[in-house]
């Protein structure tokens, strides 16, 4: 029942999100670093669930790229927080699309995960996006 394209898009995003948290975590210290590591673990769980869903649909999951270029230099804690906020915001939008493309327990999970990403984005940036994934 699922539309694989939306799941593949979300998976590609989750791969990038895990990578981005590696970049961001390296620039953060203390509480923020711990938060980044927790969020990275959450994005890994998102990635793994998407992998399971796609495999269950008989699809070949989008592989991760070897590396990802951040859209701006991640050379300070402020830039790291901004990147984390951007990643979570985008993931919220991608997971909302995944919710639309699935049904049943997969949809419930995707919509809940979209909310969790939106909350984390707000925690990083201090500002709640009106439409996640739009920017």
């Amino acid at each position: 029942m699922a539309d694989p394209a939306a799941l593949q898009n979300a998976l590609a995003g989750a791969h990038a999100a895990v990578y981005a948290y590696g970049l961001a975590g390296a620039r953060l210290t203390g509480t923020d670093r711990a938060r980044a590591l927790t969020a990275m673990a959450e994005q890994r769980r998102v990635r793994d669930r998407l992998l399971d869903l796609l495999t269950g649909e008989g699809q070949s999951p989008t592989p991760a790229a070897a590396a990802y270029d951040p859209p701006f230099a991640v050379d300070s804690p402020a830039a790291a927080r901004r990147l984390a906020g951007l990643v979570e915001d985008r993931m919220a939008g991608l997971l909302a699309a995944a919710a639309g493309a699935t049904d049943g327990s997969a949809r419930t999970w995707a919509a809940g995960a979209a909310q969790a990403c939106a909350v984390r984005a707000t925690t990083w940036t201090g500002t709640a996006a009106v439409w996640s994934g739009e920017a």
């Binding site: 590609a12 592989p63 790229a65 590396a67 270029d69 951040p70 990643v87 699309a97």
Partner: peptide
């Protein structure tokens, strides 16, 4: 998804720009 014009699934190159996270951004609330 219901017939909306969508970006094709991302092609994974060796280096993929993180902005690619936005591949499935809102097609517009219109």
């Amino acid at each position: 998804m219901s017939g909306k014009a969508r970006t094709a699934p991302p092609v994974v190159t060796r280096r993929t720009v993180l902005v690619g996270l936005g591949v499935a951004a809102l097609p517009g609330l219109a």
